[in-house]
C-alpha cells in the first residue's frame, strides 16, 4: 500500500516536472544532465552517498529531499587521476520539502562524474528520500 502511494506520488512528480521547470532532459542549453533521479539515505548510517552521475556543465546541482529527516548534503566530483571522490562544495543541511540548488566546482576541476554525499543529522530507522540532478536548467534556493 505504502509503495503504491509512493509510486503514485512519484508519478505525479514526474508528470509535474515536465511542465513546472523541474529538471528534465531538454534544458535551456540542450547539454546539461538535468534528469531527476531518486536518492535515498538510511538514517541509521552515519554517512553515505548517491551513485555517480554525469556532470556536463558548471551549473548547480539540484537536490530536493521530499521525505524523511533532514540530512547534511555536499557535492563530490570523481577525480580520475587519483581515483578519488573529492569534496567540490560546502556542506548544507537541507530541510525536507526544500528545492535546493547547490553551488559546486565539479566541472571546473575537470571532473565529469558528480554524486551527493550525505551526513546524518538525527539517528532514526527511516530513509530520507528525494530527487537530484547533477546539472540544472534553473536555480531554486541557492546554497553556497
Amino acid at each position: 500500500m505504502k509503495k503504491t502511494i509512493l509510486a503514485a506520488i512519484f508519478a505525479a512528480a514526474i508528470a509535474v516536472s515536465g511542465v513546472a521547470g523541474f529538471a528534465t532532459r531538454a534544458n535551456a542549453d540542450g547539454t546539461g544532465n538535468t534528469t531527476d533521479t531518486e536518492f535515498s539515505f538510511y538514517n541509521m548510517n552515519s554517512s553515505g552517498h548517491s551513485v555517480g552521475r554525469e556532470k556536463r556543465n558548471t551549473t548547480k546541482v539540484y537536490c530536493y529531499p521530499w521525505y524523511g529527516p533532514s540530512v547534511k548534503y555536499n557535492v563530490e566530483g570523481y577525480h580520475t587521476a587519483t581515483n578519488q571522490w573529492m569534496d567540490r562544495s560546502n556542506s548544507f543541511v537541507i530541510s525536507t520539502g526544500t528545492q535546493a540548488s547547490l553551488t559546486n566546482y565539479v566541472y571546473e576541476n575537470g571532473e565529469r562524474s558528480a554524486r551527493l554525499g550525505f551526513v546524518r543529522q538525527s539517528y532514526a530507522g527511516v530513509y530520507t528520500r528525494g530527487y537530484w540532478s547533477p546539472d540544472s536548467s534553473r536555480n531554486y534556493t541557492i546554497f553556497r
Binding site: 515536465g18 528534465t24 532532459r25 531538454a26 544532465n33 552521475r53
Partner: peptide, 27 residues
C-alpha cells in the same frame, strides 16, 4: 584504468512514463 562513464538514455525508443517532457523513465 577507468577512462570515462556515460549514462544511457541519450537514445531511447521505449515507452515513457510521462507525457510531458523527455524523461527516460520506464514504468
Amino acid at each position: 584504468e577507468l577512462l570515462d562513464i556515460a549514462e544511457t538514455g541519450f537514445y531511447y525508443d521505449g515507452p515513457m512514463s510521462a507525457e510531458d517532457g523527455y524523461i527516460p523513465v520506464l514504468s
